[in-house]
C-alpha cells in the first residue's frame, strides 16, 4: 500500500504537529492552521483520533493493576524484613 500523504505536503507538515496539539502545546497560529486542515481532511482526523486513543491507552498503563510474580514479591519482602 502506498504511504498515506506521500504527495501531500500540507498533511506531511501538519502530521508532525498532532502530538503537540493533543498536549495543548501547539502555538495558536499552528493550531489554527491544523484545525483548518483537519476540517477538510478525513484521513488526518482519523490519525488524530487514533493517536489520541493511543496516548490514552499508554496513560492507562500508569495505574492499571498488574500482578507481581509471587517469587519476586517473596524475595522483596525477605530483603526488606530480613526474614
Amino acid at each position: 500500500m502506498p504511504k498515506l500523504h506521500a504527495n501531500l505536503p500540507p498533511c506531511y507538515d501538519l502530521a508532525r504537529q498532532l502530538s503537540a496539539y493533543l498536549d495543548g502545546e501547539l502555538p495558536a497560529d499552528l493550531c489554527h492552521d491544523l484545525e483548518a486542515h483537519l476540517g477538510g481532511c478525513p484521513d488526518c482526523r482519523v490519525v488524530l483520533d487514533t493517536l489520541g486513543r493511543t496516548v490514552q491507552i499508554v496513560h492507562a498503563l500508569s495505574d492499571t493493576p498488574v500482578s507481581l510474580p509471587a517469587d519476586v514479591e517473596a524475595r522483596l519482602l525477605s530483603r526488606l524484613t530480613g526474614a
Binding site: 504511504k3 498515506l4 506521500a6 506531511y12 502530521a15 490519525v47 486513543r53
Partner: peptide, 14 residues
C-alpha cells in the same frame, strides 16, 4: 527529525 517511516500509514478508524 520526523522520518518517512513515522508518517501515518494506517488511516483506518478504530
Amino acid at each position: 527529525t520526523l522520518q518517512p517511516g513515522d508518517l501515518p500509514d494506517s488511516r483506518v478508524a478504530w
